[in-house]
Design a protein around this nucleic acid. Structure first.
Lengths: 134, 134
DNA sequence: CACTCGTATCAAGCTAATTCGATATATAAG
DNA sequence: CTTATATATCGAATTAGCTTGATACGAGTG
């Protein structure tokens, strides 16, 4: 019962074996632990939800269409030649992720892009893929 | 056999019924068709691959760790307390999507973020979720 | 060569996502 | 009230993705 409270932290043990140097290992472990503690799991989960919503070519096509303005479900399904149920379903996913907004007008549901980072993210993704197949 | 070649384009028919105005319908259909033709399916698929690679909290945590520099598999699995096979598997997904780069050094595989838009995309996703959960 | 260690890949079980027809809800019109 | 139309939701089948132990590969070491 004295100086340090972590006599055999498994993380340190692990890294000590890696480097062979127990002192280095402790520093590395401290650095990794600091990095890990900065990670907010709930926030990462929320961000993953956003990315998952954009991880489908059909939904990206919808977002592309909406760049030029508001459209209703029937216009989107017509333009992209997809069944109504599928179109509506994917729009609900985009809406839940906060990527699009809905405006009810009579029996029509008109969808538009959310203000904010949506367009920028699509542009960035475009940049990332340009290097590979352009 | 004369003026127009699209006597019963199903898209126009669809929109004509919607608006009740055949002329408007034709314009709307033309606009939608122009938008649709601008869409490059292969590029959307590639972008979807990038987003799919980022659509997992564990992989986002890996990317977060790598913001501060290169790490090997064993450091990542130790920091995030995940099995080795899982860590390696997710790193391969990130690598395939072009989000990280690998550097072999002896028996170690050291991973780092790809230069480019990766960090910006994570920042943007963070912005998008900020508004929802404080 | 035998052994160790770091990493990659495989395999099997499980969960989540996609698809689309069928059905339900809601709004408007006759 | 019935009908039509636009959209949402359900259900069931298929597919894709995650997880993890087991195994294979590759590079060092004795």
């Amino acid at each position: 019962m004295s100086d340090i409270v972590e006599p055999q932290d498994p993380c340190v043990e692990r890294l000590a074996k890696l480097t062979g140097d127990r002192c280095k290992a402790k520093n590395a472990a401290r650095r990794l632990k600091a990095l890990t503690e900065k990670i907010d799991e709930a926030e990462l989960a929320a961000e993953a939800d956003v990315f998952r919503a954009m991880a489908d070519p059909f939904r990206l096509a919808i977002l592309q269409l909406l760049r030029d303005g508001e459209l209703c479900v029937c216009e989107i399904m017509t333009a992209l030649e997809r069944p109504q149920s599928s179109t509506s379903h994917h729009l609900s996913i985009l809406k839940r992720a906060g990527l699009v907004k809905e405006r009810r007008e009579g029996k029509w549901s008109r969808y538009r892009l959310s203000e904010g980072a949506v367009i920028e993210m699509m542009n960035l993704a475009g940049l990332m893929t340009d290097g590979r197949e352009g």
